[in-house]
Design a protein around this nucleic acid. Structure first.
Length: 324
DNA sequence: AATATTCACAACCGCGACTTT
DNA sequence: GAAAGTCGCGGTTGTGAATAT
């Protein structure tokens, strides 16, 4: 039932977001939480379509997002999850809570795909062939059937990759945990907590933003922006500008805790000061700290458990034993 | 120094799935 | 059950920065 595109209305702004727009959006979500995106443009006065607002939030403004420089671990995890899941970026992103599906997709398209193609050309190893490179003529149903036969192969490859990283991977007790005051008394690794919401079913392969909300026992908790998160967000802008040789004055002082940031944004320079007072509605501690390590423990547990039926118990995902 | 090319990433678009009426 | 509305996903594009010529 065709519906008109949501963004073809006159007066709807497109293109890069300004800091002012970001602040308006963040402020609104701070008060109301994400969701009901349809209402966001009218209630905030933003001349953006609802889809654009949602995208901006989930891909850029949402707290807990790590930007830039994918680690070796993350890279390997993405490669193998892509082999396992195909181009289901939202599902892959649910295993990397700090990364957005868009980020992962971009990184895949710009770095990893090329890398793998070069590697495949060198080795001719068909087993490492990404799912995206499988014949496009395969229907989804056919692909799903192949998943069962591919899965052991992919798991083995992932196990090997992670085994080679044993020296640098965190111990299970070092994996990221939700702060007790935000997540309740149970310590739960993010990977496990979020994977529980993912379940790899089409209906549940939500964006990482949705996963966040599902991870939270309290609907509003993950979206509370602290000054630290906002500062980090601004540092991201500044770093980006600095990294690209633009006029980001804060580029060489990441996470400096400075109360003022000079930001070059869309060709303009904006100075934002005293964000703490600008975000007086901060009420709760950050739910997601900025961890240095990607949580692998649950995935590894699953991998090293030869009984694939344990997957749902370990990761909180449905058992993979499909019946065809 | 000027121009062309490549790279990286934010944002847009179309579609399918899901929900509501 | 059908229609309409909304949301989320994946593919693609546009643009600015970096690099090469």
């Amino acid at each position: 039932m065709g519906r008109p595109p949501c963004c073809d209305k006159e007066g709807v702004k497109k293109g890069p977001w300004t800091p002012e727009e970001d602040l308006v959006l963040v402020s609104y979500i701070q008060d109301h939480g994400p969701g009901n995106w349809r209402a966001v443009p009218t209630r905030t006065g933003l001349m953006r379509c609802s889809k654009s607002c949602r995208l901006r939030w989930t891909n850029y403004l949402r707290p807990g997002i790590k930007r830039g420089n994918f680690s070796d671990q993350e890279e390997k995890l993405i490669v193998h999850l892509q082999a396992l899941l195909g181009n289901r970026w939202a599902a892959i992103a649910s295993y990397l809570p700090e990364r957005t599906d868009n980020d992962i997709k971009n990184y895949w398209n710009t770095h990893l795909k090329r890398k793998l193609q070069a590697a495949a050309a060198g080795s001719g190893d068909a087993t490492s062939k990404p799912a995206a490179q499988r014949p496009a003529s395969s229907s989804k149903g056919q692909w799903e059937r192949r998943l069962q036969t591919d899965i052991n192969m992919a798991r083995r490859a992932l196990r090997e990759a992670l085994t080679s990283l044993d020296d640098i991977k965190p111990t299970p007790t070092q994996t990221q945990q939700l702060p007790e005051d935000a997540a309740g008394s149970d310590s739960v690794t993010l990977a496990a907590a979020c994977a529980g919401a993912d379940s790899d079913s089409p209906a549940a392969s939500s964006s990482s933003g949705a996963s966040l909300s599902q991870c939270s026992p309290s609907e509003s908790a993950p979206y509370v922006l602290t000054t630290a998160n906002i500062s980090r967000m601004l540092d991201g802008w500044a770093k980006k500008q600095g990294g690209r040789g633009a006029s980001g004055a804060a580029a060489d002082s990441p996470s400096s805790g400075s109360s003022a940031s000079d930001l070059s944004y869309g060709g303009r320079t904006t100075t934002i000061r005293a964000l703490g007072s600008a975000f007086d509605y901060e009420r709760k501690p950050p739910v997601l700290a900025a961890p240095e390590q990607t949580p692998f423990s649950a995935i590894e547990t699953w991998l090293f458990a030869d009984d694939s039926s344990n997957a749902h118990a370990v990761l909180g995902v449905p058992s993979m034993d499909y019946h065809f």
